[in-house]
């Protein structure tokens, strides 16, 4: 009996979509056989994803930190419950990879779950590390709090297609940003599955939007879309130049990772990546009766 295959879809605004352009690109298994048609998202899809993020972002930012923590932890639970399936999806992509394939499917899933749990815990704590009460000389109460920037663009690298993607997304959403992410182009399998996991994680639709498609074709729009307030990527020098030049038009924040980054490394787990996607706001008020 013929098994039916699952049509790969992107996850945008809490819905599973194909590209508005109708374009797809095929991915193959290790032996070169056809596996699936992946949506090749257009600039317009990206724009729609930004709209979806803009709609969901304020509500997400307004959730209590405790609530965000629980929802992120729930995401970890959901990934754990489908760990084997995710490992298979990663393995699928791994076989496809030409060289330098990354951490290995099972390890990558374990590390990803760990990373989710780590950031879930930060949601109601990072403010106590990043914020401050400032001892000014005048009779004023002065404090600095952090706020999410808004919508953050994520360009995931080709390798470690789940762990790297989550490592770039998690610091942004922990503080209440919404994300529009472009998955690994050659190994989108994990991102497709991650969309399904996000959908049942209690994370409001639109907070994380996952696109698949051509990195080269979309990078310029990611760089120049003014509603995106920050962009983070593991980027080559040429890509970095494109991103930073495009970002300059709207003074967008650009956070780059060395392509040689070890995504398993412990230094990805700290409050400092969260700092990359928050604005520090300082408030003054006089003290007087």
């Amino acid at each position: 009996m013929l098994t039916i295959t699952k049509t790969p879809k992107c996850y945008v605004g809490g819905k599973f979509i194909r590209s508005e352009s109708g374009a797809v690109y095929p991915v193959h298994d290790a032996s070169g056989g056809f596996l699936a048609n992946i949506p090749s998202c257009s600039r317009k899809d990206l724009r729609n994803a930004v709209e979806a993020a803009a709609k969901a972002g304020p509500g997400w930012a307004a959730r209590s930190p405790y609530n965000r923590a629980q929802i992120l932890y729930r995401l970890g639970e959901m990934l754990e419950s489908r760990a084997d399936e995710m490992a298979a999806a990663l393995a699928c992509g791994e076989q496809r990879a030409s060289a330098g394939s990354g951490p290995g499917a099972a390890d990558e899933v374990r590390a990803s779950i760990g990373r989710i749990v780590h950031f879930a815990g930060w949601a109601d704590k990072y403010e106590q590390v990043l914020g401050s009460v400032n001892p000014v000389a005048s009779p004023h109460f002065n404090f600095t709090v952090t706020e999410p920037m808004g919508i953050v663009a994520v360009l995931a690298p080709e390798e470690a297609p789940l762990l790297a993607l989550l490592t770039l997304i998690l610091p942004a959403i922990t503080s209440g940003n919404a994300v529009v992410a472009l998955a690994s182009e050659s190994r989108p399998d994990a991102a497709i599955l991650l969309g399904e996991i996000l959908a049942v994680s209690d994370l409001p639709g639109g907070v994380v939007n996952l696109l698949t498609g051509s990195r080269e074709g979309l990078i310029d729009t990611f760089a120049t879309h003014e509603h995106l307030r920050a962009v983070t990527a593991s980027a080559t020098r040429a890509e970095a130049t494109t991103l930073q030049q495009g970002a300059a038009e709207s003074v967008k924040r650009v956070v780059l990772h060395d392509p040689a980054t070890d995504w398993l490394a412990a230094d990805h787990e700290s409050p400092w990546p969260i700092r990359d996607f928050v604005e520090a706001k300082t408030v003054w008020h006089p003290i007087g009766a």
Partner: peptide, 12 residues
């Protein structure tokens, strides 16, 4: 808030 243009080295 209820002041303006205040500055201090400790204040970001």
């Amino acid at each position: 808030a209820n002041t303006y243009n205040r500055f201090d080295p400790s204040s970001p």
